[in-house]
């Protein structure tokens, strides 16, 4: 331990001290500016209450705005990434298909998504696809039906308040459609990284294209792309803030709500930033730990 400290101390240079000092001065200045000139009163005491509050009726602690938002974010991200992996795998397969039309369609989808701002994409998916789908399938009244039922604990566990189910589902669909393009590219790269001999061996056994993909190519490709997929999952969590624009009540949406009721602008946004950071950073640490050689069970 002592040794370690010693070696760290040895690696520090006086420049490092200067850099840290400058940073402290800079943030200190901003802090003072906010306090003096904007006449801003820091009210950090508010925040814990908006994470958890004591429910007098039920006599227990329950999640409040911010944690509710966080839970919704996590739910949406998990479902969206599952859907995105399924869609992305199909898309990746379409990108390497023999049929030119299929390849062109997949390519078009990708290029459209790449060349339109995400916010616009989200609105287009929302109004043109998920809204229509939800109306067509009558999901709204179906979800209200479930919400009224007595024993809907399982549904509530997976989707929270069932009255908000349509909104969550459209968030999931929109986010998944958006991310599927990137997952598709990752999967395509994975498929193309599999040596040609694998395909030839599968074919010479008489396998159909589907069987060849299902049993030979995809299992190897997906194993190869697990690390980039894990990173894409973290991107998806960050991208998910955007669905606050279509009124999915996730973390960012709740932050806006919190700001408008309490006016604690800085505290709210700093807290939300910290929550995203902790979530994404710990996942990123977890994934790099799992990726360490000899750790992963995958061969």
């Amino acid at each position: 331990m002592n040794n370690k400290l010693h070696s760290i101390a040895k690696r520090l240079h006086w420049m490092d001290g200067v850099i840290v000092a400058v940073l402290i001065l800079f943030f200190g200045y901003i802090w003072v500016q906010i306090g003096d000139q904007l006449n801003y009163k820091w009210r950090w005491g508010l925040i814990p209450n908006y994470m958890f509050r004591y429910d007098e009726e039920r006599e227990r602690w329950v999640a409040n705005l911010l944690v509710q938002g966080l839970i919704t974010t996590i739910r949406v991200c998990i479902y969206a990434s599952i859907l995105a992996v399924i869609l992305g795998t199909l898309l990746g397969m379409a990108r390497v298909a023999k049929n030119l039309t299929i390849r062109m369609l997949a390519r078009t989808y990708l290029e459209i998504l790449r060349n339109i701002p995400p916010v616009v994409v989200i609105f287009i998916f929302f109004f043109f696809l998920s809204e229509q789908l939800i109306t067509a399938l009558n999901i709204e009244s179906w979800a209200r039906g479930i919400a009224r039922q007595e024993n809907n604990a399982v549904w509530e566990f997976f989707f929270g308040d069932m009255r908000r189910f349509p909104s969550i589902i459209s968030g999931v669909i929109v986010l998944a459609l958006f991310e599927s393009a990137f997952v598709g590219e990752i999967v395509r790269a994975g498929i193309e990284a599999i040596p040609r001999g694998q395909q030839e061996a599968a074919r010479s056994l008489g396998m159909s294209w589907i069987a060849e993909m299902r049993y030979i190519i995809l299992p190897q490709a997906l194993r190869k792309v697990l690390p980039p997929l894990a990173n894409q999952f973290i991107s998806l969590i960050k991208d998910s803030a955007i669905i606050s624009l279509i009124s999915v009540q996730e973390l960012t949406y709740k932050a806006v709500e919190l700001v408008s009721t309490t006016r604690a602008i800085f505290e709210a946004w700093i807290s939300v930033a910290a929550m995203y950071f902790v979530l994404c950073f710990s996942l990123s640490m977890l994934f790099s730990y799992l990726e360490r050689p000899g750790k992963a069970a995958a061969r």
Binding site: P195, G197, A201, A202, R203, L205, G206
Partner: peptide, 14 residues
């Protein structure tokens, strides 16, 4: 292809 087996220079095992 079901009736014709093929062995490759590079083995191509899965």
């Amino acid at each position: 292809r079901m009736e014709v087996g093929m062995v490759f220079q590079q083995f191509n095992l899965f």
